[in-house]
Design a protein around this nucleic acid. Structure first.
Length: 931
RNA sequence: GCCGCGAUGGUGGAAUCGGUAGACACGAAGGACUUAAAAUCCUUUGGCCCGAAACGGCUGUGUGGGUUCAAGUCCCACUCGCGGUACCA
């Protein structure tokens, strides 16, 4: 019986569709479970084999949960706004919506072929007005709320207005514009002049997580700092809760650590330093209050508000020159070139403890956005201050006994204090506490907590995004009435910025509301992805983002799968967004994702041919990989990427290679055997037998330019979706990054084919103990694997069980039916067909095990585990005194065990001194002692 | 620099609670079937040594120490690789 995978897969995919097997209802008596994949951005290149890794894992888990009797929500959608579609639009004039929809169509067809159990009736896409209505709606709520830090909760801005009216007599005297300006300092979505990452090549600002090493994450273009008036979200207000919430979610420690670092809580103190000759002090933030006695100068960020006040006339020219130079530098230059720069302001501060006059400098190593934008410098115990002090010849006062600061600073927070007045002799930790007490009591400062996390910049000067529901009157923003949502993205004549440099929406006709101009920026990519998981719960609701009823049923995402690259972007923003909605009483859980797993990235595995470039090279000769280190070729070959799709198990298809590109048309080879003749005479037939050219390989990023992109459609055409699914899991642990290496796929395919052959004729005979043992081992293993997301180790377990059953020639329904049920989450199509072959019941479309929706075949329980734990107890005497009970495999001869114990005197003596509860023995070695 | 993760045969990887390291698969070698090839099946496959035989010995999980009757697994120090982050005071 032939394993015709494409016939089987098409048959069942059609049957599941027809039966609506994966449609999920919000009304069910079953327990609920919500499994979510991070939805993809539909790029023009389509899916490659790396994308479905996480989807397959979540699909296995979803199917398993269904079989276990859960009502499982497992949806899919598209993060449809994004830069590539817009860049493409600028180049071609093609509307991004058109390309996006084409790409989505292609993605869906690719995903369907893999046999996922998504409820497609719940599909969302972020560029759909029915969807972005709720993105705009949430923005309006953020505009109309402020964060009450005392209550640690978002509250309506009207409450703040009422408080101002009541408590501040000046409020009533303000004009409306002045009132609005004041409220802007409190709104959760607010407009502000902020230093932003401006990317000239993309013509837009970017959030901190969209920039890496001074380059844009998308495209890798240089980014510079600019001050612009932008929409921002007050994410920083939620920093304490974002941090605290991490203790209540089931995420990996590494991801939690990444978020904790990004949020960057640090406990310290704010201190005031008086300025010589001025009334007002300046405030700094420090985590090392213990080092105040070593403060020998102070430094301001170039953008600090203090700069203007502290620059003396004598220094003004020099300072202005420096500020202009800092402003010109790009972010990239600043990172690349870390030399010490700075300028003296002319003013002096007074060290509050030593009463020394200390100079105040301005330098770009101090950041305006963190703390107060000003620092006290302790060169002896901070490497940055140290470098600065050395450069400008400033005094360095060591404060910790034994610290040698002649060559470098001593940054560690350990040791005993000296040169520090009342702190002398204290350990650093105690000194910090003591000094905090001191500054609080004397009023020099106060204990505070600082966060690194900054507000999210929410404006993008682009076309392809959600329009802000905002119009401007008298220069102040007002939100569009909720009844007028969604505010549709307008058509534009040109996707590029306007001639006078305004964002692309400036090209739209009548972009006004009630006669007032509308906002020209659009929202960033993370806007639409911040609450999409809620929309799946209730995707067609026109009255609300999600009804409270639907939210109460599904609660939150139970299992979220996606890449760790979203740790400091999407996963922060959506937690913030969710907490905001929670404050408004719209959702019942303040954390959106209960358990989160990061699947690793699938890297490419590139193949190379080696062009001979030594003496007499024609440029047409290629050396087999196994020969390139031979003396005659060593260092005389040049590796060239070759399309992995014309290489099989590292053996090049030379005909395909010659046809691949014109430059290889006349390629000649030195084959693995060291000769150049392409055929070997066949002694039997005299027929042509092609010889082997071996390619080299390397692990690289999967990309077009490396010719190492493998398309899942091709794999499915060759091996079927079930093989693809199994193989992706077989490749290695889910969380680990690994290269896509097709070399092992035959083994997995062979397993399915062999398994398939067991189902040719089904017998009703009672299973033997041996057969049951195989099955029970498998049940135990696969259950453990799925519940622990250890999918890769299930495939070998299936192979072992299958080999055992194959050897026993087992064709019994009692074994093969549960086997199919176990296999169904991994390989649903073949399992469905296997299951129906076992089943004598009348065939019902879509009602089987692969659909795992109508539970005809519940997950098998393993009640006869004794068949696996096949052990026996032996009483053993040692020296006639100490008596043990040893547990060992049933077939271990008694003499063997006793001989063993006596032969291991150390162990025996150990056992004599400790009385173990249980000792498990195998011939030759003790394997387990339970105390 | 800091934080996190990892290192096991020719390759991908297994060993789930400290208990027979190398499961399973690929590749390779040999064999059966075949006019031949493909497909399929069987055998061998970490290294070294002894041997007529082995259910024989030694060695072995990046390096060096340690804890333990027992360490791939725990502890300390280090090397290399990967990911994140970076003047965060």
């Amino acid at each position: 019986m032939e394993y015709n995978f494409s016939e089987i897969e098409q048959k069942w995919q059609a049957a599941w569709d027809k039966a609506n097997a994966y449609k999920v209802s919000n009304e069910s008596d079953k327990p609920h479970y919500y499994v979510l994949d991070m939805f993809p951005y539909p790029s023009g290149a389509g899916l490659h084999v790396g994308h479905p890794l996480g989807y397959i894992a979540s699909d296995i888990y979803s199917r398993y949960k269904r079989q276990k009797g859960f009502n499982v929500l497992h949806p899919m959608g598209f993060d449809a706004y994004g830069l590539p579609a817009e860049q493409y639009a600028i180049q071609t004039g093609q509307h991004p919506e058109v390309t996006t929809n084409e790409n989505i169509k292609r993605y869906i067809s690719q995903l369907r072929k893999i046999g996922f159990c998504y409820d497609w009736s719940r599909e969302v896409k972020t560029c759909d007005p029915k969807f972005y209505k709720w993105t705009q709606w949430a923005f309006i709520q953020m505009f109309n709320h402020y964060y009450d830090t005392a209550a640690q909760k978002a509250k309506p801005i009207s409450e703040l207005v009422a408080r101002f009216e009541k408590e501040d007599p000046a409020w009533a005297t303000l004009t409306e514009k002045e009132q609005q300006e004041r409220l802007m300092n409190y709104r959760i979505a607010y407009l502000a002049d902020t230093k932003v990452n401006w990317c000239p090549a993309l013509g837009t600002v970017l959030a901190n997580d969209e920039v890496s090493e001074g380059l844009s994450v998308r495209g890798g273009y240089p980014v510079e700092q600019r001050v612009m008036r932008q929409w921002c979200l007050r994410v920083s207000a939620y920093a304490p809760r974002l941090l605290e919430g991490l203790d209540r979610v089931d995420w990996t420690d590494s991801l939690k650590d990444t978020q904790r670092n990004w949020i960057g809580r640090s406990e310290g103190a704010e201190m005031r330093f008086e300025i010589k000759g001025q009334d007002a002090p300046i405030t700094i933030f420090t985590t090392r209050a213990d080092t105040v006695f070593g403060v020998t100068f102070m430094v301001l960020a170039p953008e600090s508000e203090y700069v203007e006040r502290l620059v003396t006339d004598g220094q003004r020219d020099e300072v202005e020159q420096y500020l202009a130079w800092v402003k010109r530098r790009t972010e990239r230059e600043r990172i690349a070139d870390r030399k010490v720069t700075g300028v003296f302001s002319g003013s002096y501060a007074i060290n509050p403890l030593t009463n020394n006059e200390i100079p105040i400098y301005i330098s770009d190593y101090v950041l305006a956005g963190y703390g107060t934008g000003a620092i006290m410098a302790v060169p002896a115990h901070d490497s940055r201050d140290y470098a600065f002090a050395k450069h400008f010849g400033l005094p360095i006062v060591p404060l910790i006994e034994g610290a040698d600061v002649s060559e470098q600073s001593f940054d560690a927070k350990e040791g005993r204090m000296m040169n520090s007045g009342f702190l002398n002799g204290l350990e650093v930790k105690d000194a910090i506490a003591r000094m905090k007490e001191h500054i609080t009591n004397t009023g020099i400062g106060r204990v505070t907590v600082n966060y690194r996390l900054r507000d999210a910049i929410f404006s993008r000067q682009r076309y392809w995004g959600e329009p802000f529901p905002v119009y401007y009157k008298d220069g102040m923003p007002y939100t569009v009435d909720e009844k007028d949502l969604p505010l549709l993205l307008p058509e534009v004549r040109d996707f590029k910025p306007t001639a006078d440099g305004r964002p692309p929406l400036g090209n739209a006709d009548n972009w006004t509301y009630k006669g007032y101009p509308l906002e020209l920026c659009t929202m960033p990519g993370f806007a639409g992805s911040s609450a999409y998981y809620l929309r799946y719960m209730d995707p067609t609701n026109d009255e609300a983002l999600v009804s409270r009823q639907a939210n109460d049923y599904w609660q939150q995402v139970d299992l979220y799968l996606g890449g760790s690259e979203h740790a400091t972007g999407h996963l922060i923003y959506s937690r913030f967004w969710n907490k905001f909605l929670y404050d408004l009483g719209l959702v019942c859980k303040d954390e959106p994702f209960r358990k989160l797993i990061n699947q690793g990235m699938i890297q490419g595995r590139s193949n190379f041919v080696y062009r001979y470039i030594g003496e007499g090279a024609t440029g047409n000769l290629y050396i087999s990989y196994n020969l390139i280190n031979n003396p005659e070729y060593k260092d005389k070959v040049q590796p060239i990427h070759v399309n992995v799709n014309i290489v099989n198990n590292d053996v090049l298809d030379i005909t395909a290679f010659r046809n691949w590109m014109p430059e290889f048309k006349n390629a000649q080879f030195i084959f693995a055997d060291g000769t150049s003749s392409e055929i070997e005479d066949n002694p039997y037939l005299g027929a042509a037998m092609p010889k082997q050219y071996i390619c080299g390989w390397a692990v690289e990023k999967m990309s077009k330019s490396m010719f190492n992109v493998v398309n899942p459609d091709d794999v499915i055409a060759k091996y079927g979706a079930d093989t693809l699914r199994l193989y992706e899991m077989f490749l290695g642990p889910l969380e680990m990054s690994k290269p896509w290496d097709t070399n092992g796929i035959d083994g997995v395919h062979r397993f399915l084919r062999k398994a398939w052959n067991m189902y040719e004729t089904i017998s009703d005979d009672a299973p033997t103990a041996e057969e049951l043992k195989s099955l029970h081992k498998l049940i135990k293993k696969v259950t453990w694997d799925i519940e622990n997301f250890s999918f890769n180790t299930s495939i070998p377990a299936f192979m072992i069980a299958q080999n055992e059953l194959y050897a026993l020639k087992c064709n019994k329904r009692a074994i093969l039916e549960p086997f199919a049920v176990l296999l169904a989450p991994y390989a649903p199509h073949i399992a469905e067909e296997m299951y129906h072959r076992c089943n004598t019941l009348p065939f019902r479309e879509g009602a089987g095990v692969g659909s795992s929706f109508v539970i005809d075949a519940p997950w098998p329980e393993c009640n006869e585990a004794y068949l696996i734990e096949d052990t026996q107890k032996y009483p053993v005497q040692f020296n006639g005194k100490v008596r043990f009970t040893l547990e060992c495999p049933k077939d271990t001869p008694r003499e063997e065990v006793e001989k063993f114990v006596l032969a291991h005197e150390d162990t025996a003596r150990y056992l004599a001194g400790n009385t173990p509860k249980k000792v498990i023995v195998v011939p030759g070695r003790i394997v387990n002692i339970v105390m």
